[in-house]
Every structure is written in structure tokens, then in C-alpha cells.
Amino acid sequence: MRTQPALFLLALGASACGGNWSNQDLEFANALPVRADLESRVPGSASAGQRLEAAGGIQRRDPLLGDDTYAKTVAASDGFNSGIDNLLAAIEAVRTIPPTSRDGDRRAWGPYPTKDQPGFEVRVVMDRLDPRDFEYRIEFHSQAGGQWFAVVVGSFLADSDAAGARKWSGALTLLARQARDHGLPTPNIEAMDTLDIAYSTAGDPVYVAMDTVLMPGQVANRASVKSWRASDGGGQLTFSLVDVMTLPDLAGPHTVTVTSRWNASADGFSETKVAAGTNSGATLTDCWNRDGIFWSSKSWTAAPVEPQPPECVALMNRPY
């Protein structure tokens, strides 16, 4: 009969609908950090270099060519960004796939088989504790059976005054040792116990702190990097170097803390302070630009003849 297709379509119409991301799903997706928000952009570093090259700006200088404070800053920035990349790549993948299941204030993705960890399955579980407070876990378990164990745990708290997407304070932790304890291979991070990242994107500048706790027997038991990135292109990076830094006229290597600060024009300065040992407190101040270090001051020698350039002074007087 001719009416049968119409009835079929009518029945279909009453039941058939679907989609990928709901509005609530967007809230969960919005709570996940992305690499571009957290990365450091030291002029000449990998991420900043890409941006500046694209804008016709400076070429990236290879930090391996030098051992100065600027080169150490760029290397630290790249290392920092690499850590961000590795940790957030998995999280960002979640943003490309709609939730597998929805249950009130919980969204779950997976479980999915993993390519790099054969025999394991992975899932992501997000909970909304209140409209602005989220927690999430990346969990694995053996396909042969066993409990789910967390490898990454994170939390996000929306800034009540902030408007717009991803304006949050958040923290996430990579539990590398715990993963190994459950038999999960952790290639390339065998020396890591935990990696903690805390961040705030609600204000200007964006602040990110990365703290790595290393397994016993390493040269240090932990390493910390703190990054500030302002919307005007300026920024600051603070990090420590353990027994790798050599300073002119001082026997080394030294354990130092380095604070580097720059502006959008790629003018910058680095303050390197010996943190331990007989030269503790010795400070090296470098001013640099896109051509390299053009002014230095060492606390253990006489002051330079030329006065410190004003743009360098301005940067030193702009605290983050």
C-alpha cells in the first residue's frame, strides 16, 4: 500500500535523531586544557619561532650553538613545551571524539584499545562536581582483567569572573610510577615518578607551573619550570639547572636558577643566580635581542662600562 512508506517514515520520525556533542558536552570539552593555551613562547623557541616566522619575524636561533643564558632559556622552554605536548596530546584527543556515554554529570570516552600499550584498554572519565568544578581521569586496565587504574588525574575550576572558553585554574598529574607498578609500559619517562602541572588561564598572564619528581638515583630529585605568558607577547620563564651551567671566570658547573623575561619585540634579559656551593648568590645578568646577547653584567666582576640598555631595564622592572 502507498500508505506504508508514510507510516514508516512517521514512525521513524518519532524515534530517529542523534548527534555528536550536546551543549553540556561542550562544557566538559571546554574544561579540558589544550597545549596552545599552556605552552611557553620564548622568542626563538620552537613554538614561538613558528609563530614569528609565520609573521615574518625573527628566525629561530639554535640553542645548541651556544651555552649562554638565552640558549638555556630556549632549551628550557622547548623542554617545557615538550612535556606539555606529551601529556596533553592524549587529553586533546578526547576533544575530537564525542562522549561514549553520558550519565548525569559524568561523561566517559572508551574504553578503547591502545596502540602503544598492547594488552591494555584506556578510558577517560570526567565528572562535573558543580557547574564550574570538573575532575577527570585517564585510566587503563589490562584486557586480561583487572581494576582500572589512573595514569593521569586532573581537575579544573572555572574562574567565576572570567568569560569565554577555557578560563580556568587547573591541575593535572601524570602518575608514571603508578602506571609502571600496574605493568603499563612507560617508554621515555622511565626516570619519572610524577609530573604535576598547575595552571591558571583565567587572568593575564597565563601561568603554568610544571614540577617533575624523578625516581631515585637521578641527578636531582625534582625539576621545576614556571611559565608566564602575557597576551601582549611578553613572558617569563623560571627554571633550575642542576650541575650543568658554566659561568665565565667561575669554576663550575653550577646549580643555578634562571629567570628570563622578554617582550613581544624579542628584547629580553636573563638573570642567572647560583643556588648552591661556594659561589652561591653569584648573579649573571644578560640582555639579549634577536641578534644575541649584547650586554652582560657579572656580580663577581666589575660593572660593565656601558650602562644597561633602557629596554632591558624596563623588562627587569616588569615583574610577573
Binding site: S15, C17, G18, G19, A29, R95
Partner: peptide, 9 residues
């Protein structure tokens, strides 16, 4: 944000 898609009869 990811793109949203929805279909319905």
C-alpha cells in the same frame, strides 16, 4: 570547541 552536529526526523 568541537563542532556540534545533530540530525532528526
Amino acid at each position: 570547541l568541537p563542532s556540534q552536529g545533530f540530525y532528526t526526523f
